[in-house]
C-alpha cells in the first residue's frame, strides 16, 4: 500500500490545500477538457506552466508526481513500439534495411506522453490536496443542480464517504483473514491451480460474510440515529468560496478559452 501515490491525499499546509473542493474539482475538469483541444505544443506548454505553478504552490514535490507517472511508462513504451510499426507518415528519420522510423511515430507518442503527464499532474494536484471527505462534499454540492433530473446527489456522496470510512477497516480485515488461513496451511503464492482456487475462496467467502455483517450493523446504527434515505437533512460541514477559489476558477476558464482560441482561431 505504501507505494501507491496516485490518488492519495498528502496532508500539507498550503494555499491549495485550503481551497474549496468545488473550485478545485471544477478547475480540474476545465483544464482536463482543454487538454483535448488540438492547441499544439504552445498550448501544452501554457498548461504545463500553469499546472506546475499550482503544484509548486501546493508544496508537493515533483518526485511525487514522477512516482505517480512511473506505472504509465511501460504503457508508453508499448505505445511507442506500436506507433513505430504502424505509423508510416511524416519525414523518414531512420532506415536500417526494412526497418523504418517516421517522424509522426515519434511525435504522436510524445503527444500522448505529454497529455498523459498533464492529466496525471492535474488529477494529482486535486487528490493530493483534498481530503476524501471534502471531495465527497464537493461532489455532492456540484451534483445538487442535477437533483431535478433525479440524480441522488446526497446518496451518492453518502455512499462514497462511507466507502472511504470503511476502506482501512476492510484492509485490516483482509490481512487478518489471510493470516488466519495461512495458519491453516493456505499458501496464497504457490501451489497448484485447484489449490489456488480454494485459497482464494477461503479469503473471499469470509470477507463477504464479514462485510455483510458490517453493512447490517451500520444500517442499524444509521437508522437508529434517524437516517432515512431521501429525507431532508441539514449539513454540519458547509463549504465556502473565497477569493483564492475564484482566482483558481478564473485561471482555469482562461486556459480553456486560450486553448479553444489557439486550436481554432489563431
Amino acid at each position: 500500500m505504501g507505494n501507491i501515490t496516485l490518488g492519495r491525499y498528502i496532508p500539507l499546509d498550503s494555499p491549495v490545500h485550503k481551497m474549496d473542493p468545488r473550485a478545485k474539482i471544477m478547475a480540474m475538469l476545465l483544464v482536463l477538457i482543454s487538454i483535448f483541444f488540438p492547441a499544439g505544443w504552445t498550448g501544452y506548454a501554457i498548461i504545463f506552466v500553469a499546472v506546475a505553478g499550482v503544484i509548486i504552490l501546493s508544496k508537493l514535490s515533483f518526485k511525487f508526481i514522477w512516482k505517480a507517472m512511473k506505472p504509465m511508462l511501460f504503457m508508453l513504451v508499448f505505445l511507442l513500439f506500436i506507433n513505430i510499426f504502424f505509423t508510416k507518415t511524416g519525414d523518414l528519420w531512420l532506415e536500417i534495411g526494412n526497418f523504418t522510423i517516421y517522424s509522426d511515430a515519434i511525435l504522436n507518442t510524445l503527444y500522448i506522453a505529454v497529455r498523459l503527464l498533464l492529466m496525471i499532474m492535474i488529477t494529482t494536484a486535486l487528490t493530493a490536496t483534498t481530503k476524501p471527505l471534502d471531495m465527497t462534499l464537493g461532489i455532492e454540492d456540484l451534483l445538487t443542480p442535477f437533483k431535478k433530473i433525479h440524480v441522488p446527489a446526497h446518496e451518492i456522496a453518502m455512499l462514497i464517504s462511507i466507502a472511504l470510512r470503511f476502506i482501512p477497516d476492510l484492509i485490516e480485515e483482509t490481512e487478518r483473514i489471510i493470516k488466519a488461513q495461512e495458519s491453516r496451511g493456505v499458501d496464497l503464492r504457490e501451489g497448484k491451480f485447484s489449490e489456488k482456487i480454494m485459497a482464494i475462496l477461503s479469503l473471499i467467502v469470509p470477507l463477504f460474510v464479514s462485510a455483510f455483517q458490517r453493512a447490517e450493523d451500520l444500517a442499524n446504527a444509521m437508522e437508529a440515529r434517524g437516517y432515512a434515505p431521501g429525507e431532508k437533512r441539514t449539513r454540519y460541514k458547509v463549504l465556502k468560496m473565497h477569493m483564492r477559489d475564484y482566482i483558481l476558477l478564473l485561471g482555469a476558464a482562461a486556459i480553456l478559452t486560450g486553448m479553444i482560441l489557439l486550436a481554432y482561431f489563431l
Binding site: A180, Q181, S183, D187, L201, V205, P206, V209, S210
Partner: peptide, 30 residues
C-alpha cells in the same frame, strides 16, 4: 504451521466451506 496451531481472535470469521466437516478438513488437506 501444522505443528503450531494458531487460533485468531474471533476465529469464526475464517469459516468458508459449505459444511462444518469440510471446513474442519480444510487444514489437514492443505
Amino acid at each position: 504451521r501444522g505443528d503450531v496451531g494458531l487460533v485468531f481472535q474471533f476465529p469464526e470469521y475464517q469459516l468458508f466451506e459449505e459444511t462444518v466437516l469440510k471446513d474442519v478438513a480444510f487444514g489437514p488437506k492443505n
